[in-house]
Amino acid sequence: MDESANSNVKQFVVFKLGKEEYGFDIQRVTIIERMMKITRVPKTPPYIKGVINLRGEIIPIMDLRERFRMPSAIETDDTRIVIIKIDEVSLGLIVDEIMQTLQLTEDSIENITNLGEHAFVDYIIGVGKHEGRIITLLNPEKILSLAD
């Protein structure tokens, strides 16, 4: 675990949406929960699925697939809610499956300004490469502002 002492190493929570792998900076992830009952909230955008009760706190839930305009998936045993929190504002994100937590060195993270006019390119901090896998690293701040 020598690597963790290195300030150039960041830890990410890696999860799946469809076939793609995505990652969040672990510092922003409060907790990962199993799927639970979501109360629909009227007059919200379709990607806001509603709110849950997380130990007394009401937390809005966003369907990340729907947000990224991916076809929606059937809920499985692997479906998880990733709770992220920035400046006291929490948001839960529905993802297909949690893979692992992964340490990535700065060298293995590539900026992707060259990906073209992808609609959500703003919400990506970079792409992590790890043993031949490609992990899209998301910007939690942007995701949170997306929920507005």
Binding site: K37, T39, V41, P42, K43, T44, I48, G50, V51, I52, N53, G56, I58, I59, P60, V89, S90, L91, L144, A147, D148
Partner: peptide
């Protein structure tokens, strides 16, 4: 409902019911 969902006109807030649901 928190900052993100604050501006929904018809909803004043949320409450947690006996069964833990909202």
């Amino acid at each position: 409902l928190g900052k993100l969902l604050m501006n929904i006109k018809v909803i004043a807030g949320a409450t947690i019911l006996g069964d833990g649901n909202v």
